[in-house]
Design a protein around this nucleic acid. Structure first.
Lengths: 141, 141
DNA sequence: GCACATTTTTAGAACAATTCTAATTATCAC
DNA sequence: GTGATAATTAGAATTGTTCTAAAAATGTGC
């Protein structure tokens, strides 16, 4: 069974094409940066990392690319309180744990049945297309 | 059994005092505005509503008061994606449902055992002080 | 009740993250 | 290649919020 828990650089071209979009170097490098170090970087951090490969890229383009990748559902945008949006190529159903000490963010895999149980608390008439679960606290590692 | 699902204007004075803070008219009116119409207003919306009672209040004060009330745990701050922070006097454990059609936010009461189950997905070494659950979708009403 | 230290409020400036604008550049289809 | 479309770019603009410094209000000791 192929691993579908993240998109790959190869599948990105196809996914973009499926939405009528082009696989530009900027989009590919932004995506590769997210795959390479999965520490939920902000747009600014992605910008800094992408620059070493594409020194003339602009911050606006980084925002555009990230937005495109989110639209194509190969990347998830993660928000925590009012902090800057962070980006994550993990497509598995998962929650986020924000470590208050280090400021880092960790993925927490969610069993599908738990997601079902959570959705089951919605009263009749409510139809959720997405559920977000976020933890705040301390982690050992 | 007294209802502890929200603080009351009367208990506010005590709660503030417990933190060494004063019960100013601005703080009281901001809190009353939140109690009166529980539609998860933004700071701007609170500002507009408070003005009818305290016409000379400033937006900075509204932000200060809201921050104080959140610190004292009589009000919860609610964030959804990058939208403005919204405020909610419901102290019961609850999730938020964001209706994509209307832009409105509804409280969804959470059974304590579900919160336990959700916290139980955390690997050893993770200690969550808070869990946030947010739904996005459509609701009938 | 009065001084005084402390809190609180205030207006406006500053700030951070993001989005917009309009011009330029790249790319695909023919 | 040419023309239409898509994407990138730099910088300005916007939004929501926080900061700053001064003025006003308040509780406390006398």
């Amino acid at each position: 069974m192929p691993d579908t828990s993240t998109a790959t650089p190869a599948s990105l071209t196809q996914t973009l094409a499926d939405s009528g979009l082009r696989a530009t170097p900027q989009r590919e490098v932004v995506f590769n940066v997210l795959l390479k170090k999965r520490d939920h970087p902000t747009a600014d951090e992605v910008f800094a990392r992408v620059k070493s490969e594409l020194p003339t890229i602009s911050l606006a383009t980084v925002y555009n690319c990230l937005e495109t990748l989110v639209q194509c559902r190969v990347v998830r945008a993660v928000n925590f309180e009012r902090g800057p949006t962070r980006y994550c190529p993990n497509l598995r159903p998962h929650a986020h744990f924000h470590d208050e000490q280090s400021g880092s963010t960790h993925d927490i895999d969610l069993p599908p049945e738990l997601l079902e149980q959570v959705k089951a608390v919605l009263p009749p008439g409510y139809d959720a297309s997405a559920v977000e679960i976020t933890f705040r606290g301390r982690s050992a590692s």
